[in-house]
């Protein structure tokens, strides 16, 4: 009988301690720290042949930490962002294919705290390994043009997306960025290449229209250069170039707008190079 009594008593004690530990652990959750992580190179050695799994575990830890810290009402105070960045850096170093980690990085470090260059550094790693995945160049390109206003670099990455996807949407986006970056010539070359690649007529049509618009812009830009050479100043308007004989007529915007030269000397159109909106939406 005695051993049974010991078992019952000990089990009861374990249960009480278990409840106490549970409560203490719950308390800990509120002030949980992400903790210390050794250097990623050391982790790679320690991970032996399970480094992929180790990388995924480190990412989970960062993700659950962030999930526990972010408060829908109070926002995100007291989050160890730098430490979290180190976790993600190590996680993607150990498992450079982990797409979840790249999505997470893009979502948290750009929109959240505006660490664009740091985010792009991690995304570049993803692009190197996940060379087939269009989301990574899309994120990088988007970060360049939207957050850093670097249209040319942005366009370069969106071009990659367009090449991977064979999509008219990304092709248009990239050409638009190149136009914003004052690289109309590159935008035209890029569109011409894409038009050759895309065989579906319904996808080709909008690209051809954009190509035509950009050719018109290029024509006006060339005329502006010629005007500058002849008269030593910028033209005030496109019509001025027609009257001086540099342009034979005002080029037509295929989107139905009217071309003009803005204050910074850039060729623009009243259509903003977008198809006219349908009337029923403008009630």
């Amino acid at each position: 009988m005695r051993p049974l009594l010991v078992v019952i008593l000990a089990a009861g004690l374990v249960a009480i301690l278990q409840i106490s530990i549970k409560e203490q652990m719950e308390q800990r959750r509120l002030e949980e720290k992400l903790g210390y992580l050794p250097r990623k190179e050391v982790l790679k050695v320690m991970g032996l042949d399970h480094r992929g799994l180790l990388g995924q575990y480190i990412f989970f830890k960062a993700m659950t930490y962030y999930g526990g810290k972010i408060d829908p009402f109070l926002g995100s105070k007291g989050i160890e962002y730098y430490n979290m960045y180190r976790f993600i850096d190590a996680a993607t170093y150990l498992d450079p294919y982990n797409i979840d980690a790249y999505y997470f990085t893009e979502a948290v470090f750009t929109w959240g705290i505006g660490r664009i260059r740091e985010t792009n550094r991690i995304l570049q790693r993803g692009l190197h390994y996940r060379y087939w995945d269009p989301m990574l160049p899309f994120f990088i390109g988007f970060n360049y043009f939207y957050f850093l206003k670097d249209y040319e670099r942005g366009a370069r990455y969106i071009q990659k997306v367009a090449e991977m996807q064979k999509s008219s949407f990304y092709t248009s986006l990239a050409s638009r960025l190149l136009y914003e970056a004052n690289r109309t010539d590159l935008a035209i070359d890029f569109l011409q290449e894409m038009v050759k690649e895309i065989t579906k007529e319904n996808l080709r049509r909008p690209l051809l229209k954009r190509l035509e618009a950009l050719k018109m812009v290029k024509k006006i830009e060339d005329a502006m250069e010629e005007f500058q050479r002849r008269f030593g100043r910028r033209p005030h308007s496109i019509e001025e170039m027609v009257t001086t004989g540099i342009l034979d007529q005002v080029p037509q915007d295929p989107y139905g707008g009217r071309f003009y030269i803005d204050n910074s000397g850039k060729v623009r159109s009243t259509s903003r190079f977008a198809p006219a909106r349908r009337k029923q939406w403008n009630r």
């Binding site: 042949d49 399970h50 992929g52 799994l53 995924q56 989970f60 498992d95 294919y97 982990n98 797409i99 979840d100 999505y103 997470f104």
Partner: peptide, 21 residues
């Protein structure tokens, strides 16, 4: 299933590590 969009990948990783271990 804790993973966001690579559940199958994490499962494969875990399976191979368990087999290996």
């Amino acid at each position: 299933s804790f993973s966001m969009r690579q559940i199958r990948e994490v499962a494969t990783s875990l399976s191979l590590s368990v087999i290996s271990f």
